[in-house]
Simulated assay, not measured.
Amino acid sequence: MTAPAVRPITATTGAGQRGPVDHERRAQIIAAADQHFRHYGFNKTTVADLAKAIGLSTAYIYKFFDSKKAIGEAICTRCLDAISEQLRIIVAEPTSAADRLRRIYPTLARAGAELFFEERKLHDIVVTAVAENWHSGTNYEEELRRVVRELVVSGREAGEFETETPLEEVCLGIEETLWPFAHPLMLEEKLDKLDTATAAVAGLVLRSLRP
Rank of each mutant, 00 (worst) to 15 (best):
E119C: 09
D124G: 10
E168Y: 06
V6D: 09
G41P: 04
P184N: 13
T107A: 09
V6W: 06
L144P: 04
R146H: 06
T198Q: 02
D22Y: 03
G55W: 03
T46I: 01
V127T: 13
W134R: 06
R18Y: 13
V91M: 02
A51Y: 03
L187E: 02
R149I: 07
T2P: 12
A202S: 15
R100C: 04
G159F: 02
T165V: 12
Q35G: 00
T198I: 01
E157W: 05
A11C: 06
A33I: 04
S84N: 10
L56P: 00
G112I: 04
V153N: 01
A98I: 09
L185S: 03
G72K: 12
I90W: 00
L185A: 04
M186W: 11
R156V: 11
P94K: 02
E176G: 00
V126F: 00
T198E: 04
E169V: 09
A5T: 11
E188Y: 10
A74Q: 14
T177M: 14
A27G: 01
Y62D: 09
W134M: 07
A15Y: 07
H36Y: 06
L167R: 07
R78Y: 02
A113G: 13
F42P: 06
A82T: 05
D34L: 03
I9N: 12
R146E: 10
K190T: 01
L80R: 02
G41H: 02
F161M: 08
K69T: 14
E157A: 12
A92N: 05
V126I: 15
A51Q: 03
S84C: 05
H183G: 05
K52A: 12
F65S: 00
P180S: 13
L167E: 12
H36C: 08
E162H: 12
Q17I: 14
A32N: 00
K121C: 13
A129N: 02
A5E: 14
K68M: 05
S57F: 03
E119F: 02
L167Y: 08
Y105W: 14
I125K: 15
L151Q: 06
P20E: 14
R103I: 00
H39D: 13
I125N: 08
A53K: 08
E132A: 12
F65W: 11
A31Y: 00
V47A: 09
L80I: 02
D66M: 08
R25F: 04
R18S: 11
R100M: 10
P94L: 01
T13I: 05
I90Q: 01
V91C: 02
V148T: 14
A113H: 15
C171A: 12
V130M: 15
T128K: 13
I61K: 10
L185N: 09
P180I: 07
S208V: 11
M1D: 11
A33L: 02
R25K: 06
E188H: 12
I71C: 01
N43K: 08
Q86S: 07
P180M: 03
S96A: 04
V170A: 01
L167W: 10
K190W: 09
E143R: 13
A202T: 01
L191Y: 10
A109H: 10
G41Q: 03
R210T: 14
E142R: 14
A82V: 01
A74P: 04
A33E: 04
